[in-house]
Amino acid sequence: MNVEVDAIERVLKNATEALESSKYDIFEIGEAARQERESLAAELQRVMDELTETIQAVDRLEEQYRRSRVRLVEVSRDFKRYGEKDIREAYENATQLQLSLTVNREKETNLKSKRDELHKRIRNVERTIERAESLFSQMNVVLEYLSGDLGHVTRILESAKNRQLLGLKIILAQEEERRRIAREIHDGPAQSMANLILRTDIAERMLAKGELGVVKQELGDLKRNVRTELEEVRKIIFNLRPMALDDLGLVPTIRKLTQDFEEKTKIRTKFELRGKERRLETGMEVALFRLVQESLNNVAKHAEATFVTVELSFTAEGGVRVVVADNGVGFDLSKWSARAHAGDTKSFGLVGMRERVELLEGKFEIESNVNAGTKIAIEIPLDDGTKEDANHG
């Protein structure tokens, strides 16, 4: 038996060394991609600035060319006031302006093409960074477990307390991915939309000098649409990773979630807090927030409810209890259980919630009847380590 353990330990050691080496290679790939993204972003800004100047130049040249043609017609018709020299100068001026206008239009087209190409390259580089970060994170998780001896791994698997920790680590890994996506959306599309609003302001000022009222109105509509999209992106960011969860904690974040839910769905929503509020371990707060969020999503999709309550309780025993109840159409629990056992995909939502609660050593209960609403109750105990962390947090 000892020989087998030694052989396994040698395999684990070799695998660990290989993963460590590959991990830093991936890190270097990610760093190189970040530097390339910064360089491309700087180049894109330069192109955007030059494109703005070129567009303005094209507008000026178009106006000058229009006036030169009017001048050419004028001197060509009035032979009493203007001679051959005046006609030649007017013709040469119009020709020169036409040439300059053609050159600048071509330059504008090329700059727009270069801008689009840079956007495409930046997106490709960001995908490379995303893959590198994902692989780096996954390899860290693997290395964390491979770095212990076999006896330590066995003790982890046999310990109920550490099974809860394993569940928290899984949730934290998922949340880290959500946080990264939120950061990228914030730095990418949200910034681009904000820049678009600025550019439409510039376009409006330029157009205000002429009599293009219809175009100006269209630009105003575009700006309003972009602002709407920007707000949608910000909502996506909140759904991916509510920053209030880190800054303020679970209670204010769930309170805001219920307020937003009521505003969006028009379902009257009441939030109740019981017990003494306190901060919990980060992974536990994330897990509870996601469970409440998914419960409300189920109400919006399936319940046909007009009223829902969310109750969050910090129990005297040190645990946390969440109850989400609605006055909707409800369902037959026995039929739901049968569908869940049969693998019906429509039952995966509640089944997945129950499995996540069980990973945290908690209890998950459903009460529902047809035309009598649904109540979901979740109770999760906090072990000594979690409570201690929360008290110090």
Rank of each mutant, 00 (worst) to 15 (best):
G275I: 14
Q98V: 03
G352R: 01
Q35I: 10
I254L: 07
Y24S: 07
T16G: 05
N298F: 06
P252C: 13
K256E: 09
K23W: 12
A173Y: 11
A287N: 00
I380M: 09
T315C: 01
R71E: 15
G148Y: 11
E158G: 13
T386N: 05
L44S: 10
E184P: 06
H341K: 04
D201T: 09
R183H: 10
V292P: 00
Q96A: 14
I254G: 01
E74I: 10
I380K: 05
E175Y: 10
S313E: 05
K264V: 08
T309R: 01
K23R: 15
V214Q: 08
R88K: 13
R339V: 12
E28S: 05
N371E: 12
K346T: 03
L51E: 07
R255T: 07
E84H: 05
I156G: 05
E262A: 13
A203E: 12
I376N: 02
E74M: 14
R163G: 09
G362T: 11
P242A: 11
E177F: 13
N391M: 15
V310Q: 01
M139Q: 11
E106Q: 15
G349I: 08
L312V: 09
E281Q: 12
E358C: 02
A303Q: 07
D246C: 04
T265D: 02
R274A: 13
T253K: 02
N371C: 11
S76L: 12
A316C: 03
A132L: 15
N2F: 14
N239V: 10
I378M: 12
I236F: 03
D260H: 03
E38P: 00
M1C: 12
L288Y: 00
E176K: 08
Q56W: 15
S76V: 12
E38Y: 07
D116G: 08
Q138P: 04
L350D: 01
L198K: 02
E367H: 10
L207S: 03
A42W: 08
E311D: 03
R67D: 08
E272R: 06
E232P: 01
A244Y: 02
E379C: 06
I236S: 05
Q174R: 05
A15D: 09
E218N: 04
V73F: 09
E117D: 09
E176R: 08
V329I: 15
L172M: 10
S68N: 04
K216I: 09
N369A: 14
Y82K: 05
A173T: 10
V47E: 00
V141T: 13
S337A: 10
G275W: 11
G30S: 06
E43T: 15
E281L: 14
R77M: 15
L168S: 04
S113R: 08
K223M: 07
P189R: 14
D59Q: 15
R268A: 04
T253I: 08
L61G: 00
E62Y: 11
V141N: 10
